[in-house]
Design a protein around this nucleic acid. Structure first.
Lengths: 224, 224
DNA sequence: ATTAATTTTTAGGCAAGGCTAAAAAATAAT
DNA sequence: ATTATTTTTTAGCCTTGCCTAAAAATTAAT
């Protein structure tokens, strides 16, 4: 049996591999443990052949490790969607519940909710749900912070990490699939002003960082 | 935070208090650990004031311990019912899944499924679901083994421990709420013959032990 | 009432997964 | 090219929960 701690380490390492080298320190921060604990654990995970670990250098998941990461992430996102779609959770409530349950559901449970949800590809925050064999649904998105005045975009994904932030976002109407128009943008990571459903809103960096968008073609149908 | 091991010990102790003294050995057998491990754990649980423990004598849950037991059992039975009613599990599949999940759902999750199920009182095997404040729904049932020829009874509860047994029982039509007539019973724990939906069946001790029934009044409505 | 059998506890260990404090390595700054 | 700083690793310790083997207590049997 594979422990919860193991799954947590593997998952976080998988998630961090996007932004540069995965260091002992960064793992420690992400998991809220000391670096010493991380070094210790990395050695054991390397023993189990879930990752390659070279002292002082860094860490890289093996195929086996990546498989586990994707399974856990699949669980997490399916559960989030299930809680939201079937059980009436709001999108700020699903993360914490999923974070625990992801380690404890059976394959059967996974299959059942996958079918009940109609083979979904994205979770309530727009994150892709890895398929059973590890494929990740693609969608072309870019950070809201990269937008320029005049852009007309649709919100395709938000970070699920901070419930407070999610509540704030729904309050001001920034939910998935909403289309917004960028009105202005200040330099040096300054705030954007956008039009959301007729209302003008200001979105500063700390908020914008959590939002990913895709361009909307003004006359979708015609150009498709 | 209260560990899974703790919950498992407390739950099993609670369940065993019905049949006489709860001994170190009986706990060990039920949990599939050594007696030495049990002694060790009991000392720690006593420290936590979840039970009273006197060496060589026995063990008794405190109010606090009992509260935990009831919470875990409530979780277990609500989850079993949810899996069966909402997710389409069969009654032999629910126990194992519930056994894991019972330790990891939130209060919110508990409340949601409780409401989705319409404030249920019994799980798919007829076991009572303790209420939030620890009350246990009563129903008057007796072991099938206590029946006498001529009795006309309804199956009100079955043990959920053995999936194989549960599959067998459904196969021969012995499911909850089914009414059966006792045709004969051999002495010395010998087999019973019963009439189940028109078919005559033989039920021997090992099977009958798992079944609990309540008498059916031949003309319910009139006598009620 | 002893002896025999059973049950329970003690003693000592082990693996997971944390921690702190100190040492060592790598990186940055003069 | 040293010195200073930051990062990482070692070393040693702790708790939880499990184990085995031996000792002690209890219960059963003569």
């Amino acid at each position: 049996m594979i422990s919860q701690a193991t799954e947590d380490y593997i998952k976080i390492i998988y998630k961090m591999k996007g932004n540069g080298t995965v260091t002992t320190n960064s793992i420690a921060k992400a998991l809220n443990v000391t670096s010493a604990s991380v070094t210790n654990m990395l050695k054991r995970l390397a023993e189990m052949r879930l990752l390659k670990y070279t002292s002082y250098k860094g860490v890289k998941l093996t195929k086996a490790g990546e498989k586990i990461a994707l399974e856990v992430i699949r669980h997490h996102r399916l559960i989030e969607l299930y809680l939201s779609e079937i059980m009436g959770y709001t999108w700020d409530e699903v993360h914490d519940e999923a974070e625990r349950l992801e380690h404890h559901i059976s394959e059967q449970f996974e299959e059942k909710i996958f079918n009940m949800l109609g083979s979904p590809e994205f979770d309530p925050h727009g994150a892709p749900i890895p398929s059973k064999n590890g494929d990740i649904p693609k969608n072309e998105i870019s950070p809201l912070t990269d937008c320029a005045p005049g852009d007309y975009v649709r919100i395709e994904r938000v970070s699920d990490a901070d419930p407070e932030m999610l509540r704030y976002l729904s309050e001001i109407g920034l939910v998935l699939m909403v289309e917004i128009k960028i009105l202005s943008k200040e330099p040096f990571n300054g705030p954007l002003t956008v039009n959301v459903g007729g209302t003008e809103r200001m979105i500063w960096d700390e908020v914008a960082k959590n939002i990913y968008v895709a361009p909307v073609l003004s006359n979708d149908k015609v150009e498709a």
